[in-house]
Design a protein around this nucleic acid. Structure first.
Lengths: 150, 150
DNA sequence: ACTACATTGCAACTATGTTGCAAAAATTGT
DNA sequence: ACAATTTTTGCAACATAGTTGCAATGTAGT
């Protein structure tokens, strides 16, 4: 149904380019969901995607698409203490099976928005002997720059 | 059914002392659940508690007890990327509406155990202008000191 | 021991996430 | 452009997780 649509000049859209780069086949749902991430400047929860795509796609498809994107290094997960994982686009360095998102995340308690603070790196930690880290998540919550003025 | 049981010498058990200190009334379920936390050296998920208490208490009671303990500053939540919040005892400094658990948490990918690394403090972060932090969670995952030897 | 208040269990419900399978679509090679 | 192969999708059914209202029971203070 999609057949690899190109622009007139032969280039693929940046959505499709990204899918290709990460060796993910191109489908309607993946195009639509990846577009949402690329247009959004904040992280998205499963529910955000479900409501923004209406009934274009089945719930299950969204779950599977998100899982595929995580597996292939296109998006990364952001843990939270409120039982709702968010997802956000990875930067260049991530690829299949290997994430390198070592920036901190910020969740606003007022508006609920979750940001990747790309320029704030997670500091290296000295762990006790015998503990070996493969991943570190740092999530700060509080008021974001749009809500603090109120 | 409980009537504030004391030891022979008049002291309350440390479980009850803790409940009193945090202005939480003493009930069977709270005694049992707080005991579990005090006996455990790692964090507990709702499911851990449900399975360790058998059918002594309703599922709903466990949810509400955990929420009460969090609200009153007895335990704190530990976010995770696998959709299962863990809970662990707070140290002295926490009280109603105000948590001060600024240590990092470690989740072992092998055995699933979650630890509070009390001696590893979360470093102060410099946030972008306009962002104000009220809470910081840092969760490291990898292999714990019991699993890394394998 | 009595009263006022808080907690519990139950039932029903909502939300969230998973699995198997047949139909549909995407990719690959010609 | 077509057919063959592989992947993805939607559906249905199921499984797990969390919430709410309410009547019954338990706790705390006097």
């Amino acid at each position: 149904m999609i057949a690899n649509k190109k622009y007139k000049d032969g280039r693929l859209s940046s959505v499709m380019e990204t899918l290709k780069k990460h060796h993910v086949s191109i489908t309607d749902s993946r195009n639509a969901i990846l577009s949402l991430f690329m247009e959004s400047d904040s992280a998205l929860a499963h529910m955000d995607i479900e409501s923004r795509t209406g009934d274009d796609f089945d719930r299950v498809t969204i779950y599977r698409t998100l899982q595929t994107f995580v597996d292939k290094g296109i998006i990364h997960t952001i843990p939270s203490a409120d039982n709702s994982i968010r997802y956000a686009l990875c930067k260049e360095a991530c690829r299949e099976g290997h994430h390198h998102d070592n920036h901190i995340h910020f969740m606003c308690d007022d508006c609920g928005t979750t940001y990747c603070l790309d320029h704030v790196q997670i500091p290296d930690m000295q762990l006790p002997g015998g503990f070996f880290a493969t991943r570190t998540d740092m999530v700060v919550s509080g008021s974001c720059n749009k809500c603090i003025r109120k």
